[in-house]
Write a protein that binds this DNA or RNA. Structure first.
Lengths: 179, 179
DNA sequence: CAAAGCATGTAAGCAGTTACATGATTGT
DNA sequence: ACAATCATGTAACTGCTTACATGCTTTG
């Protein structure tokens, strides 16, 4: 329900190969499916079988053949239908919070270590996000509206990590005050 | 990797039946696996087979037999190991944002409708969260530390929905200004 | 000479959701 | 009469991850 639509989304810009899509997914930090190329290839095969994309094989001398995928009218219709469908609530899932929830059996030191570890990871991630945004060029940028939307999505992502980081720091301080 | 640990977490408080666990999951808004009883039952069977929980069947006259599950020492060890394991980064997944990302093909009206729909859902959810928190008693409350942690987790959840809501409203306004 | 990049896939498995299946009791 | 509560499970499917499998070229 999701990586397939995202692939159709990228292909709505222009034709791509599976390898190129892999790079797009990795760069577009708005999407978490980084680096998992396998599903892209299998999804492309499925999309092709379903008639949502067409494929052109380009033989190359020095490299394996490239398979360039192009979205079809059926694929465009599918994409449009998804775009207009009722959006779902976002999912915020944090294993660290689940760990915290049942941390009653941990000592103060162990708990603080857990929080410290979570804090560090969030901090790293937030910095990485901001850095990627600063370097610019995440997104298509074909119209002012599209540019605004992609910038907002990236900012939102960074802001979420920062909010989680601030929350973690606050909680850590409060717990330290308790003991 | 997760619902099993959460079940062990609840069972570390006291023994429960599958049905009671189902209620705990639904109430504890910190967890998103609401209402999905099936996996609880299958997970309990697995945990039992693995020796992490023991089970006592209580026959009843007017109702089906209750299977009361109790955590074993092995289960406690498993729980503790998970609690001390390196926390993962939180996952923020928003299908609505993916829809937005490729909304270039939508008209201004269609896009605004999408945002309005997302905004309403977030608003409902945020209100529900706050209301549940206000009614109190989400969490175990056996020590000041535990109480603080559960309150913080619930607040954090509500705050995330509110942040997403504010983001959506802001984006909607900016887009309106563009056109 | 090793690492990174180019380029494609298959197979197995896990977590989680949805649908299917049953059936009595209690409250409105 | 109808819905909700109590109480348990099985089977199929989807989405995603991990491991496996290949092999050539360019850059440091």
């Amino acid at each position: 329900m999701s990586i397939r639509h995202a692939i159709l989304g990228f292909l709505s810009w222009k034709p791509f190969t599976g390898y190129e899509l892999k790079g797009l997914f990795a760069d577009a930090l708005s999407f978490h499916w980084s680096g998992n190329s396998n599903q892209i290839y299998t999804s492309l095969l499925e999309l092709h079988k379903a008639g949502s994309v067409s494929v052109e094989v380009q033989q190359q001398e020095k490299h394996p053949a490239r398979k360039v995928y192009t979205i079809t009218d059926a694929g465009r219709a599918e994409l449009r239908e998804w775009l207009l469908s009722e959006p779902e609530l976002p999912v915020f899932r944090s294993m660290a919070q689940a760990q915290l929830a049942w941390s009653a059996g941990l000592s103060d030191g162990e708990l603080d270590g857990l929080l410290a570890s979570y804090e560090r990871q969030l901090s790293d991630q937030a910095i990485m996000c901001r850095e990627t945004i600063r370097r610019g060029s995440t997104g298509p940028d074909r119209s002012p509206r599209e540019k605004l939307i992609w910038k907002s999505i990236n900012d939102n992502r960074a802001a979420l990590y920062e909010a989680e980081l601030a929350w973690t720091r606050g909680l850590r301080a409060k717990i330290r005050k308790l003991s």
